[in-house]
Design a protein around this nucleic acid. Sequence first.
DNA 1: CAATGATCCTGTCCGC
DNA 2: TGCGGACAGGATCATT
Length: 267
Amino acid sequence: MPELPEVQTVLREVVKELQDARIEGLECLYPGTVIVDPELRGIAWPATLTGYERRGKYMLLHLSRGNSLIIHLRMTGKLVSTRIKDEASCHERACILLEGGHKLRFVDIRTFGKITLCRTENIPRFMPNLGVEPLGGDFTPAYLKQLFRQRKTPIKNALMDQTLIAGLGNIYANEILYRSRIDPQTPAGSLSLHKLKRLEEQTRAVLSEAIAMNGTSISDFRRVDDKSGEFQNFLQVYQKEKCPRGHSVQKIKQGGRSTFFCPVCQK
DNA sequence: CAATGATCCTGTCCGC
DNA sequence: TGCGGACAGGATCATT
C-alpha cells in the first residue's frame, strides 16, 4: 500500500521520467479516475514539468501553462513507464502521454486512485486538509503533545489520521509503534512527552530507512520501473507471527484496520 | 469538534 | 470444481 516512502519513491522516478520529455496529454480510461478542474480552460498540452513536491501521500507535479497534476495512488495505483515495460493491462485507468509515443500508464486494480489536472492556484480546492509532515521540522514531541491533547482515540488511529499527520498508513503505523515500544491502543492524549520523543525519533527513522530502500512491496506495490522496494524485508511486526525478540505478535482490529503488535515489548 | 462506521472496488484466499 | 464470504485498505461522507 503506497504510504509516504512509496509515494516518495514513485515521485522521484516519475520526475526522472517526465523531466526531459514533453507531456502531450492525459487520457482517462476509467470513469472518474481523471478529474479536470472546470476552471482549466484552453489547451493544457503540450506541457513540461516545472516543479514537484510530495504532500502526505499526494504527488504534485507542476506543469508549464500554470497547471498541475495531483496524483494519489490510493491502495493499488501504480505508474508504469512504457520505456521499461510496454505491456497492456486491463487495469490501466489513465495514461500520461509523452513525446515520442512513450507513456506513463496509471494502472490501478481497485480503481480508487485519482489523477487531477487543475490550475496550480486551485490545488487547495482539490486537496483535503493535511496534517504535519512527519519528516519536517515541525514534527516534534512538543507539537505531538499539543496535537494529541484531549484525544482519546488510540494512538494507532491518530497516526493514520491524515488530518493530524500526513503520510502514514497501516504498515508504517504498526512498525513505528513497535519500534517506539508503545501499545497501539494507548489513548493518544495520554502519551508522555518521553514516549512522544521515542515516537518522533522512530517515525523519522522508519520512514528514512524505508525511503532509502525504495519503499515496501507488500502485495502489489511496484516502482515505476516495475522493481520492488526492499523495506518489506525489514518489517518487524506487520503480518509477522513473532516479533524480533521472539514474542508472539497479536493481531487486533482498530478502526476497521489490522493492527499487529507485541504485548510484551509495547506498553 | 471528535469519533465511528459504511462505502467504494477487485483480486485472493479459505471453507464447504 | 465452484461458490459464497471474508479480507485487504485510503479517503470520504454520513451519523452519533
